[in-house]
Simulated scan of single mutants.
Amino acid sequence: MKVVAFERSVQGTGASRRLRNSGKTPGIIYGGKDAVTVIELDHNALFHALRKEAFHSSILDLEIGGKAQKVLLRDYQMHPFKPLVLHIDFQRVSATEKVHMRVPLHFINAETSAAVKLQGAVVSHISTELEVSCLPADLPEFIEVDLGKIEVGHGIHAKDLTLPKGVSLVLHIEQENPVLANARIPAVKSADTEAAPAAAPAAESPKDKA
């Protein structure tokens, strides 16, 4: 994805406020061997870009003065109640250095699993993203979590996933192996199932025998 920015010569709280009033968003680019660069971006274009999943998990081509550099979105601040981006941070990346990035999870095939189709289970998504390590060229926009074989009372863990080539779990995720999704029978349904056999003898009363 391409992002167009402009170098910002004036800094400070007052300057940032004036930028926002003129439809711009202040930001910075840091990392690598170059110094921190202060920038400004068109607010409306940035606001709509932030609504796209790929903008948060992809290597971005950030263009300044006709020259592009590879960056990752690292942080941004929103106004507490207005649809307004107050500030944004990008980090430069090198093609030869691995990056740590949170990648969205896309859950598939839950509706075709035996747990859902035959047992009436409900699948819960415990995590919606996963932190991975890879070279920028190998960074996936998302990772699929196949729920086709999920079983009731069991979960899909991080280490159960088949990761794309060149992608690995970061160390603490590898060690913790968190649950990403699980399947449970709804409590109400379980109660109904247990109550049904108990209700059967009550159908026969002394009056019926008479």
Rank of each mutant, 00 (worst) to 15 (best):
E174W: 05
A196W: 12
G153L: 04
P26E: 15
H43Q: 13
V123S: 02
A35T: 11
H172R: 13
L171Y: 09
I126D: 06
I59G: 02
K98Q: 08
E40P: 00
H106M: 03
R8Y: 04
V4R: 07
E111S: 15
R74Y: 01
H79M: 12
L147C: 13
P186D: 13
V38R: 14
G65F: 10
E40I: 02
E174G: 03
R18A: 12
L105K: 08
E7M: 08
H154G: 12
A114W: 00
I88W: 04
G31N: 03
S133K: 02
H154R: 15
N182T: 11
A196V: 05
G65S: 10
K165H: 03
H106Q: 10
P83V: 09
E111K: 15
I185S: 03
T112R: 14
V132Q: 00
K189M: 14
V167W: 00
E151H: 08
E40C: 05
F6L: 06
A49R: 12
I59A: 14
V85Q: 08
L105W: 00
G120V: 09
K189T: 15
E204I: 14
H48M: 10
V93W: 03
E111D: 15
A183E: 11
V103I: 13
L163Y: 04
S16A: 14
V71N: 11
Q69M: 12
R8M: 09
H48R: 13
D75Y: 06
V132K: 01
G14D: 05
V132R: 02
T162Q: 13
D192L: 14
F55W: 00
V36L: 13
A202W: 00
G120T: 05
A191C: 04
R102F: 02
C134Q: 06
A54D: 12
I28K: 09
A195L: 13
H87E: 09
H125D: 03
V103C: 05
T112S: 12
N109T: 04
A195P: 00
V99S: 03
D208F: 00
L19H: 01
T193F: 03
L46R: 07
E53H: 05
I28R: 07
E129N: 13
A183H: 06
S190A: 10
V93C: 07
K24G: 05
F47T: 05
K98V: 03
N21D: 11
V152H: 08
P164A: 06
A200S: 01
A187G: 01
L19A: 10
A110R: 09
V4Y: 10
P136Y: 06
N44S: 14
E174N: 08
R8C: 02
A137F: 09
K207H: 02
L118R: 13
I59F: 05
A35K: 09
N177S: 06
F6E: 13
F81T: 12
V179N: 02
D138F: 07
